[in-house]
């Protein structure tokens, strides 16, 4: 699968990754090569096979709908880049 620069721009935007302009050609080459490798999967006919998302065939575990966690907001916000009055700060979204 040959990707183009425009594909890399689109993927990088979907993944919210800023890619330096001088690096785009490297990623275009590397990702094209990886997709070539991955396309060996086309050798296998997989029509009716059920997809397997997970190695253990166990049902999802349920628990009573009870509060089990304490509020540790202050503790967790100690590692935040920017907080004010208990809120995470981000650049202004609404003018």
């Amino acid at each position: 699968m040959l990707l183009h620069k425009s594909d890399i721009d689109k993927i990088a935007w979907l993944a919210r990754l800023a890619i330096a302009e001088h690096d785009v050609s490297n990623y275009t080459r590397d990702l094209s090569n990886i997709l070539d490798l991955v396309e060996q999967m086309d050798q296998v006919e997989t029509g009716e096979i059920e997809a397997m998302a997970h190695p253990l065939e166990i049902p999802a575990r349920l628990r009573p709908d009870e509060i089990t966690e304490n509020n540790q907001k202050d503790h967790f916000q100690q590692v935040a880049p920017a907080v004010k009055n208990g809120h995470y700060l981000v650049p202004k979204v609404i003018e």
């Binding site: 991955v38 999967m41 086309d42 296998v44 997989t46 096979i49 059920e50 997809a51 397997m52 998302a53």
Partner: peptide
Amino acid sequence: YYLKAQKIRRL
């Protein structure tokens, strides 16, 4: 890609 890979994963 993804669905195909999950099917071969089962194989």
